[in-house]
């Protein structure tokens, strides 16, 4: 009886708690890492005073945000204004339910799965749920009753909807190979084939990654919040913890898309070359550590890109999506379908 309670209730509940808290912890890591790495790229040192090498800087920022005044400007749509940051953060966190954070670990007789939910259409659910954040952004932009947030929100919608298409097509080419939309099956298929999909589908990887950067509104595609044009974009009028929600949601989305890239193209929790017997000692390292190392690389890559490239102009951004990425991904899908049929 008690074991049933443990396995059926307590462990799933703990898993949910971990999956809800883990993106938040990553946000803390990412804020520090981003500020330090961008500083290094710019030949500066970055925050290094609060705590060891400045690791407590995000906490200092959070405490400051917590005690900030909550400004509600007149003419704002109060309900939508308040609900927008919640939608954005919620969509980012909810999608983590379908992301496998590691393989199955055997503890005694119990098989501990490092994912909360397994769905035959997990991949579609992740893409769909994370796309809901557009609503939060446009709500926030519109409800602010201010012109810069509105422009930022509109830009964001156009951008995210445009880049959904190449994302979907890139994902489709992966699904051709994995023959499943279940995130766990995709990883298992890579183990079966003995090779990460990144090596079979490099074009899909590049298309997906560019679209992922665009969908998270990150530099060089950070048009919706371009500081030099739109003050801060859709969250210009937000202050205090509501702004903090948007901020956390942006980083949580980065973690989410890094996880998706890792699962789709880099074998999730698998070590490199999973089937080479010579390298089988790599399986001794728990899966979630491999997963973590991989997503840290991609999160670093986000920051690296931000420190390197200048911002696109908006027409160039849309041109890149519709004139390059969409035809390229269509061609890619057709070629892969052809290869698959033959």
């Amino acid at each position: 009886m008690s074991s049933t309670l443990l396995y059926e209730f307590i462990i799933p509940l703990l898993k949910v708690a971990v999956v809800a808290i883990y993106p938040m912890l990553m946000v803390i890591v990412m804020i520090w890492l981003e500020r330090r790495v961008v500083a290094w790229i710019q030949s500066r040192i970055g925050p290094n005073r609060v705590g060891f090498q400045g690791v407590l800087q995000p906490f200092a920022d959070a405490i400051k945000l917590f005690f900030k005044e909550n400004i509600m400007q007149c003419g704002a749509d109060r309900f939508i204004f308040n609900v927008a940051p919640v939608i954005v953060l919620w969509s980012a966190l909810l999608a983590f339910t379908f992301v496998p954070l590691g393989g199955t670990m055997q503890i005694g007789t119990y098989n501990l799965n490092f994912w909360v939910a397994e769905s035959p259409v997990g991949l579609l659910l992740i893409l769909g749920i994370s796309a809901i954040s557009v609503f939060g952004i446009i709500f926030g932009g519109w409800a602010s009753n201010s012109k810069y947030p509105l422009l930022g929100g509109l830009r964001s919608v156009v951008q995210i909807l445009s880049y959904e298409i190449p994302t979907g097509l890139a994902v489709l080419s992966v699904v051709f190979f994995s023959e499943s939309m279940n995130m766990i099956d995709i990883v298992k298929k890579q183990q079966e084939m003995g090779v990460w999909f990144a090596f079979i589908l490099p074009v899909s990887l590049i298309i997906f990654w560019i679209s992922a950067v665009a969908e998270t509104n990150r530099c060089p595609f950070d048009l919706p919040e371009g500081e030099s044009e739109l003050v801060a974009g859709f969250h210009t009028e937000y202050s205090g913890l509501k702004f903090g929600y948007f901020f956390m949601a942006e980083y949580a989305h980065m973690v989410l898309l890094s996880s998706v890239v890792v699962v789709l193209f880099f074998g999730g929790w698998l070590p490199p070359f999973p089937n080479v017997r010579f390298l089988s000692f790599l399986h001794k390292v728990p899966g979630f550590i491999w997963y973590f190392v991989k997503i840290m690389f991609f999160l670093y890559f986000y920051i690296w890109i931000r420190g390197t490239f200048p911002r696109y102009r908006f027409d160039e951004l849309i041109k890149l999506a519709w004139k390059w990425l969409v035809p390229l991904s269509l061609l890619n899908v057709m070629l892969i379908a052809l290869i698959k049929v033959l």
Partner: peptide, 22 residues
């Protein structure tokens, strides 16, 4: 092949590990 982008990334990677002037 995104050669220019890779060159740019290589430049910033070098600067990441250069001594800082601060």
């Amino acid at each position: 092949l995104l050669i220019d982008l890779l060159i740019g990334l290589w430049v910033t990677l070098k600067y990441t590990f250069k001594p800082k002037v601060t």
